[in-house]
């Protein structure tokens, strides 16, 4: 398999571009760099994972089913998505209409020493999503392309899957918020008001 040209897109630029148009979207992040990226743009509608690798997409499913009128966006990494690849089959089968998944794909396990993931060896996550029954899927590697995907991510009937190839840039851990109970309760209170504590 031919190796594609390495992307020069910076992950933080991609995430900032996407979240800049979030509106009232509910966000779930996978653990690691995706969590830190979104943490630089903190919001009460963000639920961050610091563990539970492989679970981000399915947290998005439960949230999307509970909040059918809101868009739910999952932003996660390629390693995290590979660990939860079965969930792409579940989501495709269930046709979750208000769910979009974005994989920030640097083809590396950057938290554990920059080991290559399977996406560096040709495994095509968007292809898996497409074969699983997602309504719209794609792989992009430039900021201009990311911008063209905004209406799809936020408005098109889901499930939507976008794999964004990025470069290997790493950033220092920027988010201090890591108490799970607080992250959960803040999210619920912002979304549900006083009903969060019924």
């Amino acid at each position: 398999m031919a190796t594609a040209k390495k992307s020069t897109l910076d992950r933080r630029v991609a995430v900032k571009t996407i979240l800049g148009e979030r509106g009232d979207t509910l966000l779930v992040t996978g653990l690691g760099s995706s969590c830190y990226d979104a943490g630089t743009l903190d919001h009460p509608n963000n639920y961050y994972m610091w563990g539970g690798m492989g679970g981000a997409a399915m947290i998005g499913v439960g949230l999307a089913l509970a909040q059918p009128k809101r868009r739910v966006l999952v932003i996660t990494g390629d390693g995290e998505m590979l660990m939860g690849m079965g969930s792409l089959a579940t989501i495709g089968a269930e046709k979750i209409r208000n769910l979009s998944i974005v994989v920030i794909d640097n083809e590396l396990y950057s938290e554990t020493g920059m080991q290559p993931t399977h996406t560096s060896r040709g495994v095509d996550l968007a292809g898996v999503a497409k074969a699983s029954g997602f309504m719209t899927t794609g792989t992009v590697s430039t900021l201009a392309e990311v911008k063209t995907w905004m209406p799809t991510l936020y408005n098109k009937p889901g499930p939507v899957f976008l794999d964004i190839k990025v470069n290997a840039n790493r950033y220092p851990l920027s988010i201090r918020l890591r108490d799970g109970v607080h992250i959960k309760n803040r999210f619920r209170e912002a979304l549900l008001g006083s009903a969060a504590f019924d």
Binding site: G52, G62, L63
Partner: peptide, 15 residues
């Protein structure tokens, strides 16, 4: 394990 994550999401959304 998908179900464990899904039900965490359901609670986040009020279900």
């Amino acid at each position: 394990e998908e179900g464990v994550a899904m039900l965490a999401g359901s609670w986040l959304g009020g279900d």
